[in-house]
Amino acid sequence: MAEQDNEKQLDQLLDSLLSRYSDAQPRPGLETRILATVRAQAGEQKSPGWQQIWVWAGAAAAIAIVAALMMMNHSARKVPGSPTIANTPQPSVIPLKNPPAEHQRIAEEPPERKHSPSRQAQRVVVSAVREEVRRDVFPTPAPPSDQERLLLGYLAGAPQQEIIAQSRPDRPAAEETPEEQLVPEIQPVIQRSNSTR
């Protein structure tokens, strides 16, 4: 009898202990924390797609910038030609025997001298400078104007020394080089009906 009571009491004790074994309550806010973690993880799972899009967009933008810089660098290497010079009809250049330095000196003449030979000399200087620079496209040859035709006619008939004398400014004799002193004095040009001034 006592043994049965002990057995019964032991069963009750065990049942009570086992019922409490897992009867635990989580700490407050567990469900909220789990939802926050799950949502954060779900957001990270979605974002790789968005991250990939941003990565590809950034790469495309970088490629576009590099390509634009390369194009700008390439175009900067081209001759920055003056549109007025390139577009204006170019007269035919008569090669002179003067060296480039002479050309430069001629180009520095005072602007008051508006003789056609000085203008021609300036054009020679410009063409010489232009020749030093590579150009991709040469200007299209244009027919000479009336003025140019008159000049060409004059130059074809005039002696070379006369042309040279016309191209040089009047300088004091002291500044003349020994070579220039050897050049005989040239008489003034006879005014012709077709002379260009």
Binding site: E31, I34, L35, R39, A42
Partner: peptide, 21 residues
């Protein structure tokens, strides 16, 4: 995500007690 949220709302206590056991 909505499916998981539904499971969290319904079974968090059961899941916790299994883990605690």
């Amino acid at each position: 995500l909505e499916a998981v949220e539904a499971l969290v709302a319904q079974h968090t206590l059961m899941v916790f007690r299994i883990a605690y056991s």
